[in-house]
């Protein structure tokens, strides 16, 4: 059975976020923010959650290696800035230590005695929104394949890498499908790498979420993204189902025409580490 490896400091897993930063990502959503801005916010929150889930009172435990690969115009490069910009994938300890900045935000929480109190919370930022130029998706997935192949070679016994690819448009440097196919053939002993695709839109409604067949999709582009997407492993399918999505055997990790809530859920489901359930 694939996707059973326990995630530990000796056998970490890898999350790689592949983010479209092409010009069209500056389109404004119904919520009044650009797609790039919204995706950056959700990505920062996801990184924060991943670091938090590895943090204990004595420090951050290296359960995950995490990378961000950003593409737009003619560039395919690390999406991190500062000290992390030299490489693509870094141990979660390094991610926690090298933020771009730490902002302060207010949040209201239960005080445990029936009341609500406002807490000031430190919120780290790693990734700022950018949007310019074309969509070199093929080159981005080729770089992803290379990165993941290196990682799997050095982590043969680990839970395989999960790649979360976020885009809003079609590739401008050729068909990306064969790159995705090659990527999904890279594996550890615990199974092949997982590629999940999220297509975001500014318009609400009309989304297709975790489909089981191409016939549910309207055009060639969305059907190609379906073929590029891995089936959801059982524990992620259950988590998606628990969040209210209709999941059946063979549901693929694809959201097409996703609205902002879909973006949030896509990141949360895709990065649901097994160790949260494994005590």
């Amino acid at each position: 059975m694939p996707y059973q490896a326990e995630i530990s400091r000796d056998n970490p897993t890898c999350f790689l976020f592949v983010i479209d930063q092409s010009g069209s990502m500056d389109e404004i959503t119904e919520a009044g923010r650009s797609k790039a801005n919204f995706v950056a916010d959700v990505l920062n929150k996801t990184l924060y959650t991943l670091v938090t889930s590895c943090s204990k009172s004595d420090g951050v435990r290296n359960y995950f290696d995490v990378g961000v690969l950003a593409y737009g115009g003619s560039d395919v490069a690390s999406g991190f800035g500062g000290a992390l910009s030299d490489g693509i994938v870094h141990p979660i300890c390094a991610i926690s230590e090298h933020t771009l900045r730490v902002e302060e935000r207010k949040k209201k929480v239960d005080d445990g005695a029936g009341g609500i109190i406002e807490l000031t919370t430190k919120f780290p930022i790693w990734f700022d929104p950018k949007s310019a130029g074309g969509t070199p998706m093929r080159a981005a997935l080729d770089k992803t394949r290379e990165t993941i192949a290196d990682w799997c070679e050095s982590h043969p016994g680990s839970y395989p890498p999960t790649i979360l690819h976020v885009t809003d448009g079609q590739s401008t440097d050729g068909a990306p499908e064969e790159m995705a196919e090659g990527l999904r053939q890279i594996s550890t002993k615990d199974g092949p790498a997982l590629l999940f695709n999220l297509h975001v839109t500014t318009a609400g409604g009309g989304e297709t979420v975790f489909p089981t067949s191409e016939s549910a999709l309207a055009d060639d582009y969305s059907r190609m993204l379906f073929r590029m997407s891995s089936p959801l492993p059982a524990h992620l399918a259950k988590f998606a189902s628990d969040k209210g999505y209709s999941i059946t055997d063979g549901s693929r990790g694809l959201i097409f025409n996703g609205d902002p809530q879909c973006v949030v859920d896509f990141f949360e489901i895709g990065t649901r580490p097994k160790l949260v359930a494994d005590r």
Binding site: T52, S55, S57, T99
Partner: peptide, 30 residues
């Protein structure tokens, strides 16, 4: 339970924790 939680919270000065420990502290111990 509230008294037990209050005793735990006295072990740490939340506001002086670095962000990753503060976040983990807020998330809770189980």
């Amino acid at each position: 339970l509230a008294a037990a939680i209050a005793e735990f919270h006295k072990l740490y000065d939340r506001d002086s924790l670095p962000w990753m420990k503060q976040a983990s502290f807020d998330r809770g111990s189980f």
